[in-house]
C-alpha cells in the first residue's frame, strides 16, 4: 500500500493524521457549509449582519417548506424527474442492444461504428445546438419534456455504448458459444444469456446517467423555456430572481435542487464509483 499506512507509523503521526482529516474536510467543503448555514438562518440574521454566527433562531423548517409552498420548485423538480427517468430507461435500453451487437459479433465496420459512438460522445454541445434546436422546433417539441428526453437519449447512447460494449467484451464468450451450439436464437441469447449478466453494468450506468441528466443545464436552456417543462437546473435561475437577495431562501432552494443526485450517490455508491472509474484500472 502506498503511501505507508499510518498504522505502521508512530502514535504521534497517527494522532496527527486523524486530527487532520476532519479539518481538511471542513476546509474542502467550506463553500457548501456556508450555504448550508445560510439555509437555516432567518431573514433577520442577514439584515442584522449576523452572517457567520449561530442562527438567532432555527429557521430551517420554515425556509425549506417555503421552497415547496411559495415557489414553482415542486414543479421544476417534477419536470426533472419526468426528464431524467425516461432518459435513463431509453439510453440504457438502446445501449444494451448496441453494446451487445458491437461486443459479441465480428463484422465489417464494427470498429468504425463503435468509434462513431465514442467520438460523438465527446463533441462539444455547441456544434449540435443550432440543428438540434431547429429539429426540435420543427417536430413541434420545443419547450416540451419529450423534446429534451429524445435528445438526451440519443446523446447518452454514445457514452452508454462505449460502456456496455467494453463490459460485454469482458464477459466469458464460452457462454454465448455454448448457447449457439444448442441452437438458441441470437435474440434469445441476448435476452436470456447476456442481459442477466449485464445487471451490474445496467445498475452502474443508470446511476451515472441519472446524475448527468439531472445536472444538465445547457440543453435545458436551449430546448425549453417555461415552468411547464424546464428542469430544476434551469428553474433555479427563475427561483433566484423571485427571491432576489433573500440568501436564506436561495440557499435552501439550491440545496433542494442539488439533493436528488447526491442522495442517489450515497445510496448507490458502489455502482456509481464502479461506473465512473471503469477503465481506471487495467
Amino acid at each position: 500500500m502506498f503511501p505507508t499506512p499510518v498504522e505502521r507509523r508512530s502514535a504521534a503521526v497517527q494522532a496527527g493524521y486523524k486530527a487532520l482529516l476532519p479539518f481538511a474536510l471542513i476546509l474542502w467543503l467550506l463553500p457548501l457549509l456556508m450555504v448550508a448555514l445560510f439555509s437555516i438562518k432567518p431573514d433577520a440574521d442577514f439584515t442584522q449582519g449576523n452572517l457567520w454566527g449561530w442562527p438567532s433562531t432555527f429557521a430551517g423548517v420554515e425556509n425549506y417548506s417555503r421552497v415547496f409552498t411559495d415557489s414553482a420548485m415542486p414543479r421544476y423538480l417534477l419536470n426533472s424527474v419526468f426528464i431524467t427517468v425516461p432518459t435513463v430507461i431509453g439510453a440504457v435500453a438502446l445501449s444494451c442492444m448496441t453494446g451487445f451487437a458491437l461486443g459479441v459479433y465480428r463484422f465489417r465496420g464494427n470498429i468504425w461504428i463503435f468509434f462513431m459512438f465514442v467520438a460523438g460522445n465527446f463533441v462539444p454541445f455547441q456544434i449540435l445546438m443550432v440543428p438540434v434546436r431547429d429539429l426540435t422546433v420543427n417536430m413541434g417539441l420545443y419547450d416540451t419534456r419529450l423534446g429534451l428526453v429524445l435528445f438526451h437519449i440519443a446523446f447518452q447512447t454514445g457514452f452508454c455504448t462505449l460502456f456496455m460494449r467494453n463490459f460485454i467484451r469482458a464477459l466469458p464468450r464460452e457462454l454465448i458459444e455454448a448457447a449457439r451450439v444448442e441452437g438458441v436464437s441470437e435474440i434469445r441469447i441476448f435476452w436470456y444469456v447476456v442481459l442477466p449478466l449485464m445487471r451490474p453494468a445496467i445498475a452502474a450506468l443508470s446511476v451515472l446517467i441519472f446524475t448527468f441528466i439531472w445536472n444538465d443545464y445547457f440543453w435545458a436552456v436551449v430546448l425549453t423555456q417555461g415552468v411547464e417543462s424546464q428542469p430544476v437546473t434551469a428553474g433555479i435561475t427563475a427561483f433566484n430572481s423571485q427571491f432576489r437577495a433573500a440568501y436564506h431562501m436561495m440557499s435552501a432552494g439550491s440545496i433542494i435542487a442539488a439533493l436528488p443526485p447526491v442522495m442517489m450517490f450515497f445510496l448507490m455508491q458502489k455502482h456509481f464509483i464502479a461506473g465512473l472509474t471503469l477503465g481506471a484500472v487495467k
Partner: peptide, 13 residues
C-alpha cells in the same frame, strides 16, 4: 440490434 441506437445517434448527433 444496432438499428435503433444508430438511428437516434445519427439524427441527433
Amino acid at each position: 440490434f444496432l438499428a435503433p441506437g444508430i438511428l437516434f445517434f445519427a439524427v441527433y448527433v
